[in-house]
Amino acid sequence: MKPYDYILQIVTLILLYIQFIVGLTLYFESPIVHYFIKNFNEAIKLRQVRFFGMEHITMMTIGILVFTIGYIKARKNKAV
């Protein structure tokens, strides 16, 4: 693996985690999410509120996990 590839991987991973932390901060400060949490039984029936309160955070977290697993597998398979 070239040093440039390693640096690019590390920088991408760091930026991904920074974006994740900023996103979590904004998520828990959002008035939509506060409404979703306080009025869960009502909010689950509203498509837009459910998307931002539950679906978006779930899919973004899964995306982070997939990216991290891919990074780990690529690092272990560096001999190829």
Rank of each mutant, 00 (worst) to 15 (best):
43 A>R: 05
12 T>D: 02
30 S>C: 06
24 L>N: 07
52 F>C: 04
7 I>A: 15
64 I>N: 06
37 I>K: 07
39 N>G: 06
69 I>S: 10
37 I>Y: 03
74 A>G: 11
41 N>I: 06
8 L>E: 14
73 K>L: 15
71 Y>A: 14
49 V>C: 03
62 I>W: 04
3 P>T: 12
52 F>N: 07
44 I>Q: 14
34 H>S: 10
30 S>I: 03
45 K>T: 10
51 F>E: 02
23 G>R: 03
35 Y>Q: 04
70 G>H: 08
41 N>V: 06
27 Y>M: 04
1 M>W: 11
23 G>K: 04
19 Q>T: 13
21 I>Y: 08
8 L>H: 11
20 F>Y: 15
35 Y>G: 00
78 K>C: 09
11 V>L: 03
14 I>Q: 01
30 S>Y: 02
40 F>C: 07
48 Q>P: 05
43 A>E: 08
57 I>H: 00
31 P>D: 14
37 I>N: 07
69 I>N: 07
16 L>D: 11
37 I>V: 15
71 Y>L: 08
77 N>V: 08
65 L>N: 05
39 N>P: 07
13 L>V: 05
28 F>V: 03
2 K>H: 14
12 T>R: 05
23 G>C: 11
54 M>P: 00
61 T>R: 02
71 Y>H: 14
41 N>K: 11
62 I>Y: 05
45 K>A: 06
77 N>M: 14
50 R>W: 00
32 I>S: 03
80 V>N: 15
36 F>P: 04
39 N>R: 10
10 I>T: 14
79 A>K: 13
32 I>K: 02
69 I>V: 15
49 V>P: 02
66 V>E: 09
38 K>T: 13
29 E>Q: 09
74 A>Y: 13
75 R>E: 15
62 I>H: 03
2 K>R: 14
49 V>R: 02
18 I>G: 05
57 I>M: 00
29 E>L: 13
64 I>L: 05
36 F>M: 05
11 V>G: 03
65 L>Q: 02
73 K>D: 13
78 K>Q: 14
75 R>G: 04
71 Y>D: 05
61 T>A: 09
33 V>L: 06
21 I>K: 08
53 G>K: 00
40 F>G: 07
79 A>C: 08
13 L>C: 11
7 I>P: 02
59 M>D: 09
53 G>I: 00
42 E>I: 11
26 L>G: 01
47 R>F: 12
45 K>C: 03
53 G>S: 01
53 G>L: 00
36 F>N: 03
22 V>M: 03
25 T>H: 13
7 I>W: 12
7 I>F: 14
26 L>D: 01
15 L>V: 09
65 L>M: 12
14 I>V: 13
42 E>T: 12
